[in-house]
Design a protein around this nucleic acid. Structure first.
Length: 566
RNA sequence: GCCCUUGUAGCUCAAUUGGAUAGAGUGCUUCCCUUCUAAGGAAGAAGUUGCAGGUUCGAGUCCUGUCAGGGGCACCA
């Protein structure tokens, strides 16, 4: 929080730019050494002096004109260590309000985030959920940073899996089951179809290349759908409707909203138009058999990227081109982030290049945030084989476990908030691009670095404030501070820069890790500093209140809810 | 074959974007509920950061090579 003071102090004597200094400033390994540190190595070349000597010289210079917020500077070897004025920091921290962490960095610029995008007909499993939860968290982070985030849910409603589902729907649908549990019934149909199909697959044969009775049936249905055959269309609409119900239930439970939900199928025609125009301009070329392609540089070589099939039907990239252009026209976004599995990375790179070549300059502002796979045991989940862990089941179990805990301690906690929070946190605490393994043991663990631990520390803080009743919210005298108080205050003060960094790096895990650090600092404080009845009660109540606000905001950015008791 | 990505404590992950003694959780061995919620706190054991070179004041982090896992290279999505 007082970094600016240090930068100002260093600017003149080091003749470095403010930004350079900011990047160099770091935190010493432990707080007895100082609160901020400036390493002098960079200066040693310029000044042709040993860094240790420079540190000492600077100490003498700076000590003369320290600001109110900086108490002391000392040289420790080649480092210049600053001690901030803890009383001043404390005064600031106890004054924070619910806006703490918000900053108008984005100036209302529009960021469109494409996330979740489940395939209709397939249930959401613990693998899909990563895009959903990361995307939602990014929305919240950019909102805090003063951007205007737009969330788009791009439903996968085209492709061979739809054809398969239609075949299965016609043959084996159990209507009652569909009404009772649409998601489960659609999954049953899909798995049954794939089971039949599988028995006919010859070893080593790729799915699309297959020429077996079942796959052909599915392709047949797709063709009918494209020709707008009424009966087929009706089934497709049903699948849309029923799986939509399943999705809504999940989004509702997870408390996730979208600005817009749109099926991929809506953008095929637009994509074709764009490509036809580009063909006239010569950017897109036609193969003898009628397929359209665009030449893209990949890995140093020019490669053909097909954008329309020879039978003139749209492929994945055709839809995406249409969708990107329509979105840009509709929202005039400054930036768009696609949040999907990292396996699609090459696809998005080609998409961006294709758009750029066709002449859309907004292509420069498109990003792909690819995240790793969720593995269960050693295997990746495959819906096809029915080898899925349904999100529904995971949530049900965690909520149940939370209920037991609440019952045991006879408090008023909200089991749903605890269970949902636990799952979100598991997804968010890891860096997006890494693969993560899902284990039931982790999902049901509520101790240590977990959301329930964070919520628990919030509840404890709330409990103290409740017992205190009305407390002084005006000026409080700040006396001598104890070690645990100082650590907590310092951790709270870091929150705003963590939010910025998370936005910059499109990485919610930074906030998750920070939240844990914050809660841990509070727990240590809680065990070491008595609040009620203590001579520092007034100040400590204010401090707890600030802690609670900060943790609440941090968890809000992760989409995790808090409660006063649990 | 080409390209991307990951390798850190038994397990799951951090490490201030190149900085000071690589930290947490979990599991294991102990201690603390007459004290603001024990979903908690304290202490201990546990590491050649896959391996080998290089770059420099300094490398878990950057470069090269190598080994191992995962993925991509379709007119599939």
């Amino acid at each position: 929080m007082f970094k600016q003071d240090i930068i100002k102090l260093l600017e003149e004597p080091t003749s470095l730019k403010q930004e350079e200094i900011l990047n160099l400033i770091e935190t010493p390994p432990n707080s007895e050494m100082g609160d901020y540190a400036f390493p002098c190595f960079v200066l040693s070349k310029k000044k042709k002096k040993a860094p240790n000597q420079i540190a000492e010289d600077l100490t003498k210079k700076l000590s003369k004109n320290l600001s109110k917020n900086i108490e002391k500077v000392i040289a420790v070897g080649p480092y210049l260590n600053f001690f901030i004025n803890k009383k001043e920091l404390t005064k600031k921290i106890i004054k924070i309000n619910s806006n703490f962490g918000k900053v108008n960095l984005g100036k209302k610029k529009k960021i469109l985030i494409d996330f979740s995008g489940p395939n209709i007909g397939k249930p959401m499993h613990i693998g899909h959920i990563r895009s959903t939860i990361i995307g939602d968290s990014l929305m919240r982070i950019y909102d805090y940073l003063g951007y205007n985030p737009i969330g788009v849910n791009y439903l996968g409603d085209v492709g061979l899996h739809i054809g398969k589902l239609i075949v299965a729907y016609e043959m084996w649908l159990d209507k009652d089951a569909l009404k009772k549990g649409p998601v489960a019934e659609l999954l049953r149909l899909y798995v049954k179809f794939c089971g039949k199909e599988k028995t006919e697959i010859k070893e080593g044969m790729e799915e699309e290349m297959q020429d077996n009775e079942w796959t052909n049936k599915a392709k047949e249905k797709l063709k009918l759908l494209e020709l707008e055959d009424k009966k087929t269309k009706k089934i497709w609409d049903d699948i849309h409707k029923y799986s939509g119900k399943g999705f809504d239930k999940v989004y509702d439970m997870l408390n996730i909203d979208f600005t817009e939900t749109a099926g991929q199928s809506q953008f095929g025609d637009r994509g074709k138009d764009i490509l036809t125009n580009a063909l006239e301009k010569g950017v897109v070329k036609r193969e003898d058999d009628g397929a359209l392609y665009i030449e893209i540089e990949m890995g140093g070589k020019m490669q053909k990227k097909y954008v329309l099939r020879s039978n003139q039907t749209a492929s994945y990239i055709t839809y995406d081109i249409g969708a990107a252009v329509e979105r840009f026209e509709k929202y005039k976004f400054n930036k768009m982030i696609y949040v999907t599995d990292f396996r699609q990375h090459d696809h998005f790179i080609s998409l961006f290049m294709a758009l750029k070549l066709i002449g859309y300059d907004f292509a420069d502002n498109l990003h792909h945030l690819g995240f790793g796979t969720i593995k269960f045991g050693k295997e990746i989940m495959a819906t096809r084989k029915g080898k899925v862990i349904l999100l529904d089941d995971v949530l049900k179990k965690t909520i149940q476990k939370a209920e037991q805990g609440i019952k045991k301690r006879k408090t008023k906690g909200d089991a749903k908030k605890v269970g949902v929070g636990a799952i979100k946190y598991i997804v968010l605490k890891n860096e997006p691009q890494r693969d993560v393994s899902f284990t039931w043991e982790n999902a049901l663990s509520f101790e240590g670095n977990t959301a329930p631990y964070l919520q628990y520390s919030y509840a404890r803080a709330s409990s103290i404030l409740k017992k205190a009743g009305n407390f002084n919210k005006g000026n409080v005298k700040v006396g001598k501070l104890e070690k645990h108080e100082i650590e907590l205050i310092k951790t709270i003060s870091k929150f705003p820069e963590i939010v910025e960094k998370a936005g910059e790096n499109q990485n919610p895990s930074l906030i998750a890790n920070y939240s844990y650090d914050l809660a841990k600092q509070f727990s240590e404080f809680y065990h070491n500093c008595k609040v009620l009845g203590d001579e520092n009660e007034a100040l400590r109540l204010r401090l707890i209140d600030s802690f609670r606000t900060t943790l609440h905001n941090a968890l809000h950015l992760l989409g995790i809810e808090t409660m006063p008791e649990m």
